[in-house]
Amino acid sequence: MGDSVLRESDWRALTVSPRKRELFVEDLYFRETWEDLVRVAGERAAETLGPLAMLAFKPDGVVGRRMRRTLSFVEEEGFELVGFERVRYNRHSMRELWRWDWNLYTTDRLALSSLMHSATDTFLLLLRDTAHTGVTPGTVRLADLKGSVLHPWGPRHLRSVLRAPNKVIKFCHVADEPADLVRELGILLDRESRRELLRGAGEADADKVSAALLEEVGRLEAATVEHGFDIDETLERLTGEGRLPKDAEARIREVMAGGPRMSFDELAATMPPATDGLALWDFVLVASWVTPLEREGHVGLLPAPTAADWQGRHAPGTG
């Protein structure tokens, strides 16, 4: 048997982006996971994705102790947990996950992201939107609730609830559309894990799954250092411990006040990054404030569609 052919109705259920459709039809991770989904759900594969959403904690979400708060938020917003897997990013998976954003970001940010994303295990959550009506997919509603890096976060956005300190330390990631959920499961999980997760989603007892996740969260947190991600407290502690010279602290605060940014290598020469523990996260936090993050004149190659885009498709006269 060859690959399953996606019908027009499948693509309409997966994305509102013609460009994403062009890219994903040839994407290895998308193709593999779509076959898994067809194996599990058959002709109803695309329909099955409608209420589902995916949230993956970043290592800073583990170290910053934001996992329980996030789970409470999504449950209060009408999402129930139907499955989870313990995962670990590496330098390759984090590049693939955000493949169409890296053209916007600097190589300094790439070095920083490689360091922070490979630092610890974390969890991938599969959620079901209990408010799903068949118009806006669960992925899209959750992405809107999370808050976009392109717009200010409101008090009810997850980014605000989690008190994300900046646009690097954001604690979690969500799939933007059903098509992204399919592709990203292919990046983060192997074949058997994907199929098991998808099979279990339809009959999961959300309360039992949540209880199991919280037990695993407790185990992971017990084995992982905690960091508050407060930049002022961190700089004062580093200077007080003699790990950061006062002139270096002054240079960092100059950057934070709008002065010229420091390259990753410049910061590393002043404050060598550790490989683990609190010192690693001290470096990550400082770097997230002072290194150049974006390349001028560049934009992401696949802007994320919003709920309004999906609702517009169903407006009278749009077909």
Score class of each variant (00 low, 15 high):
Leu162Arg: 04
Met54Asp: 09
Ala307Pro: 02
Gly277Tyr: 10
Glu47Asn: 05
Trp153Lys: 08
Lys20Glu: 15
Gly297Asn: 06
Val62Asp: 07
Phe229Met: 03
Asp207Lys: 13
Glu233Asp: 12
Ala308His: 10
Trp289Arg: 10
Val25Thr: 15
Pro303Glu: 09
Leu181Ala: 02
Val225Arg: 07
Val16Gly: 01
Arg65Ala: 11
Phe84Arg: 04
Glu85Cys: 03
His132Thr: 00
Arg199Cys: 07
Val284Phe: 02
Met54Gln: 15
Pro59Gly: 02
Ser9Lys: 12
Ala53Phe: 04
Thr33Gly: 07
Arg39Gln: 07
Ala304Gly: 02
Arg95Leu: 14
Ala111Asp: 13
Phe73Lys: 04
Gly277Glu: 11
Arg69Lys: 14
Val38Phe: 07
Lys208Gln: 14
Val149Thr: 13
Arg69Met: 12
Leu124Pro: 02
Asp121Lys: 11
Leu52Asn: 01
Val40Gln: 00
Pro245Glu: 12
Leu97Met: 10
Leu55Asn: 05
Arg156Trp: 11
Glu35Phe: 02
Met116Pro: 01
Glu233Gln: 12
Thr139Ala: 14
Arg88Cys: 09
Trp34Thr: 05
Glu96Gly: 04
Arg31Asp: 09
Arg191Pro: 01
Pro260Ile: 00
Arg261Met: 03
Arg219Val: 14
Asn166Gly: 07
Val290Trp: 00
Ala211Thr: 12
Ala204Gln: 04
Leu97Asn: 08
Arg159Tyr: 09
Asp60Cys: 13
Leu28Arg: 14
Asp10Pro: 09
Pro272Lys: 08
Leu238Cys: 07
Asp176Thr: 02
Leu162Asp: 03
Leu197Cys: 05
His227Trp: 11
Trp98Asn: 13
Pro178Asn: 07
Leu142Met: 08
Phe283Cys: 06
Leu145Val: 05
Thr234Phe: 04
Glu26Thr: 11
Asp10His: 12
Ala212Met: 03
Glu203Val: 10
Leu110Gln: 10
Ala307Ile: 00
Pro18Gln: 09
Glu236Gln: 13
Glu296Ser: 11
Asp108Cys: 00
Glu221Asp: 14
Asp282Leu: 08
Leu115Asn: 00
Ala248Met: 03
His117Arg: 13
Gly258Val: 10
Asp190Val: 06
Trp153Cys: 08
Asp101Leu: 11
Gly258Arg: 06
Ala53Arg: 05
Ala164His: 03
Pro260Leu: 01
Phe30Asn: 03
Gly312Lys: 10
Arg128Trp: 09
Gly83Lys: 02
Leu214Glu: 15
Pro292Glu: 01
Leu189Asn: 01
Phe171Ala: 08
Trp289Gln: 13
